[in-house]
């Protein structure tokens, strides 16, 4: 329709007509991406610039006005009372992240080996193992609070009946993070299992047949064929899990509220409590910026490693 209008336009030389037509077409193409870009600028790029601005102020949410205080908030974070909390928070975040990565990769791989089998029963069981990922953490979090309850939780009852020592889980500094990781394990293992199964199925059978001719046993085939050929998938899972788990908030907020005694005070939770419990938006901004830089650096690093790593033809 739009073109026919243009075709009717009289008195244009052929050349300028095409030029005009092209230009109008490219403007229309551009208009297609404008809505998305406008929203991204308003809700992603402007806020990140604003974040830097806030970090140089003394803004407290309960006051309306603020003034610029230079690097005061940065000094608070690196040389003042903020440093110890920051370091502790970073440590907890990293401990959580490393644990989630290990659970995702090792657990997912083991489950993939177990469930990569075709039969009606397995086709029925696989989605059940995979589903927890899609249940809201807010919901599964409260379920796990009850399962992990110190006195009436079914997990401690099970441990007792097996003759093992029950743990205080979420109410003790020492075990709170482990309690949160129970939920994490339940959520993520099925997901990485599905990823590993799809990667395993794309490995050519030829490799295994060749190994059979050489008389390799099951473990050798796994170690020398399956595992190396899965490495691109492992790196993909590593990178995505790393980025996602550094940002953990929901399960902490629902299950422990950062406690007990800051034992699970991960970075995003700390930023949240600085901004919405202490109303120190300025300090929250500084911590956000440093956290953002850490995320960027780590992402760049992991991407570099993954580029360098050998790419097999899987």
């Amino acid at each position: 329709m739009i073109q026919t209008k243009k075709e009717i336009r009289p008195a244009e030389t052929g050349a300028s007509k095409t030029v005009n037509y092209r230009r109008r077409e490219s403007i229309k193409d551009f208009m297609c991406v404008v809505p998305a870009l406008v929203f991204l600028i308003i809700f992603v790029y402007y806020p990140i610039v604003h974040l830097f601005k806030i970090s140089f102020t003394d803004w407290n949410l309960i006051r309306d006005s603020y003034k610029y205080v230079g690097l005061k908030n940065y000094k608070w974070l690196f040389k003042g009372s903020g440093f110890d909390v920051w370091l502790a928070s970073l440590k907890v975040t990293l401990r959580y992240t490393i644990a989630e990565i290990v659970i995702t990769i090792v657990g997912g791989l083991l489950l993939a080996l177990l469930f990569n089998h075709t039969s009606k029963a397995f086709n029925f069981m696989r989605p059940i193992v995979f589903m927890p990922k899609y249940i809201a953490v807010a919901t599964s979090g409260v379920v796990f609070i009850w399962i992990l309850h110190k006195d009436y939780g079914v997990l401690n009852q099970a441990l007792k009946s097996l003759g093992l020592k029950p743990l205080p889980w979420l109410v003790s500094e020492k075990t709170a993070l482990k309690g949160v990781l129970m939920l994490t394990a339940w959520r993520v293992m099925g997901y990485s299992m599905m990823l590993y199964i799809s990667a395993m199925n794309s490995i050519s059978v030829d490799y295994y047949e060749a190994a059979d001719l050489d008389g390799a046993n099951g473990f050798k085939k796994f170690w020398y064929i399956t595992l190396p050929l899965l490495s691109p998938m492992t790196i993909f899972i590593l990178v995505t899990t790393f980025i996602a788990s550094m940002k953990v908030f929901q399960s902490i907020d629902v299950m422990t509220g950062g406690g007990p005694y800051n034992a699970t005070n991960v970075m995003v939770f700390w930023i949240y409590s600085l901004a919405f419990e202490e109303f120190r938006v300025d300090r929250a901004a500084v911590v956000s910026i440093i956290f953002f830089l850490i995320l960027l650096a780590c992402t760049a690093l992991t991407l570099k490693i993954s580029e360098k790593s050998v790419n097999y033809d899987a």
Partner: peptide, 14 residues
Amino acid sequence: MIPIQVIFVPIYVM
């Protein structure tokens, strides 16, 4: 590369 978890404070302010 810019997750909501980093910029929620300024978005909230806005």
